[in-house]
Write a protein that binds this DNA or RNA. Structure first.
Length: 620
DNA sequence: ATAGGGTTAG
């Protein structure tokens, strides 16, 4: 009622429906007319009625307006009806059932009223109906404007209807709506949601003017389609353009991209940009910064951001805890967990995932069990599959593979592929072939077996020297059409991301890189490095194995790092799969012989190599 | 008489 001018409405007039009438309305939601003495709407007409409808809040007011429109024979008056429908269909009320009844009663809806309904459907849990209504609109000869296209595109995004969206795109062109930048942004988002990256780009290219939001949609499209490097490039182009500048959303997206790519230098650039524009005060940006720095292996920087925050929420604490965990600071993570509680921030289920993973990464078996037991008892958070996964990992690494197997079988939730895979990894460490075979059976049952799973099983057999079984598994993989994807390692150099796969001959500086790798291999061998051949797949000669190992993607990336940076510079490599035993030894030795800090982030965690030692004591 | 687009962190 705040918005109503006191000149027109005295306070005493401003009362809602009588409780008697309200009770009846509750019983008869289809009610069309409310009899009885007129209330504060009675003398309203024209502009005053319009502004009253606009300021109406809550259903009782709208019902009263409904009654008023009927009483004054204004229900079929498009102006009042539109304003009324707008209030009913859209938030805050957003009563779609009521809006539908109104709409179906209205004799000849115009485009504006259709637009309201289509937009309302786009925000409801039945967005497909919006598309239906759009088609009905076309059938009844009402022409859509560019807003209609925008709302119905949104319906297609929400309902996931690809062909619907294509149809809309064709109509946009037919009706000449393509000059509307906002509409095209929505259209880009549609293609992006369908992972049609190149179509989204095509729309973007055809836009005559691109504002910050259009760029942000493009960047989020790049990220959804795993074209993270293009996302970084877009940031550079935006910064050098005159008409639009990156905003906080852009930075949020980019920090995520940097975290994925291990692009520390670029991430620092985004950090500076945030400082220059005052975004670094925002909680979400700070939390994203913490994640970016810790995913890039810079836990000190992450902590600096964390310390500088005036206010910290669960997300900040959890980001810090998970960052400490993945960087091998298990005890500090648990300490941070304690501090968080002292600071009066209560943990949620993701915090526990962080704490438990800290325990599993640092081999803190007792602490992990204690936390696991306390979470439902003390905090009322029942463990989910991720929590179980951490504990399975923890027990598995400690060699308690059978106990871990029993734990999985005792879970209330259905085990997923990831948890079986975790156990399979533990079987690999402890050479448990029998249990490994059982686990593979579970994965097959889930139809989730991947190349990596068979590789683990192969590793188990080959470490036993069980070559018959190795051949069997390889045959099985061939029969089932399972192919191994080559692992990929990335390294950042001067703000560019360089990508390597095993035996990769595509890099422009390939000759130098291979020469450098040979040189490194020789030097390391002098220092006592012996290539680890146990985990290789084939039953091939020792010579052959050593050759196959020497061109692993992480070694190529490291060689490139040694080649392109001055002595003493840290080498940071990200790998999409797990680092292998041999590359682990290689990096460890290199950190001593070449006196370089080497940081490798693999699929699971960080490995910090310094002076011939690694932050994780054992290889995994 | 007249509405719309991106990110929501771990």
């Amino acid at each position: 009622m705040k918005a109503i001018s006191p000149r027109r409405f005295s306070v005493s007039n401003c009362r809602c429906l009588s409780s008697h009438a309200a009770a009846r309305i509750n019983h008869h939601p289809q009610i069309q007319c409310i009899p009885g003495p007129t209330n504060f709407t009675s003398h309203l007409h024209g502009d005053a009625l319009i502004s009253f409808i606009k300021s109406a809040s809550g259903k009782p007011h709208l019902l009263e307006i409904h009654a008023h429109l009927i009483r004054k024979f204004l229900f079929e008056d498009a102006i009042f009806f539109s304003a009324f429908l707008f209030r009913v269909a859209l938030p805050p009320l957003h009563d779609l059932a009521y809006a539908c009844r109104l709409f179906s009663k209205f004799r000849k809806p115009d485009f504006f009223q259709y637009n309201i309904m289509i937009r309302a459907y786009g925000m409801s849990d039945s967005p497909g109906n919006g598309f239906q209504l759009y088609q009905e609109m076309l059938r009844s000869g009402v022409s859509p404007n560019s807003l209609t296209s925008s709302f119905v595109t949104n319906c297609c995004i929400k309902s996931g209807s690809f062909f619907g969206g294509l149809q809309i795109h064709a109509r946009i062109l037919r009706y000449g709506h393509q000059s509307d930048g906002r509409l095209l942004t929505t259209l880009m988002d549609f293609y992006s949601s369908k992972e049609k990256y190149s179509d989204a780009c095509k729309v973007f290219d055809e836009m005559s003017h691109r504002d910050t939001i259009a760029w942000n949609v493009l960047i989020s499209c790049y990220m959804r389609n795993r074209r993270t490097r293009d996302a970084l490039r877009a940031f550079d182009i935006m910064q050098s353009s005159y008409d639009c500048q990156p905003d906080d959303v852009t930075c949020l997206l980019l920090l995520q991209a940097c975290a994925n790519l291990n692009a520390l230098a670029f991430g620092e650039g985004v950090h500076r940009y945030c400082e220059e524009h005052g975004f670094d005060k925002a909680m979400n940006i700070c939390n994203a910064l913490i994640t970016m720095y810790s995913r890039c292996g810079c836990i000190e920087k992450a902590f600096e951001v964390f310390k500088g925050m005036t206010e910290k929420d669960v997300v900040s604490w959890t980001a810090m805890i998970s960052g400490l965990a993945s960087n091998g600071y298990g005890r500090d993570a648990i300490e941070a967990f304690r501090e968080m509680q002292n600071a009066g921030v209560s943990p949620d289920y993701q915090t526990f995932t962080g704490v438990l993973s800290a325990c599993s990464h640092s081999g803190l078996l007792d602490e992990g069990r204690m936390v696991f037991n306390s979470m439902s008892k003390e905090f009322g958070i029942p463990p989910n599959i991720h929590h179980y996964g951490c504990v399975v990992d923890l027990m598995g690494r400690a060699g308690m593979v059978n106990e871990a197997y029993n734990l999985i079988n005792s879970m209330k939730v259905r085990p997923d592929a990831t948890i079986w895979r975790t156990l399979l990894g533990a079987c690999r460490i402890h050479g448990q072939a029998d249990l490994g075979e059982q686990v593979i059976e579970h994965l097959i049952e889930l139809k989730a077996q991947e190349a990596g799973d068979y590789v683990l099983l192969l590793n188990i057999y080959s470490s036993h020297g069980d070559w018959d079984k190795v051949i069997n598994v390889r045959k099985m993989m061939k029969d089932r059409g399972i192919q191994t994807n080559p692992a990929c390692s990335t390294i950042e150099f001067r703000g560019e991301i360089h990508e390597f796969v095993a035996n990769d001959f595509s890099h422009p500086r390939k000759t130098e890189i291979f020469e450098m790798l040979d040189e490194i291999n020789q030097q390391l061998r002098i220092a006592g490095y012996v290539a680890e051949t146990m985990s290789e797949l084939h039953n091939v000669g020792v010579e052959e194995k050593q050759i196959a190992l020497s061109y692993h993607s992480e070694k190529l990336a490291i060689a490139f790092g040694v080649l392109s940076t001055p002595p003493g510079t840290s080498i940071r490599v990200a790998k999409d799969l797990r680092i292998c035993v041999d590359c682990h030894n290689f990096a460890k030795m290199l950190s001593a012989v070449y006196n370089r800090e080497v940081v490798i982030r693999d699929r699971n965690r960080f490995h910090h190599f310094r002076e011939g030692r690694c932050s994780c004591n054992d290889y995994w």
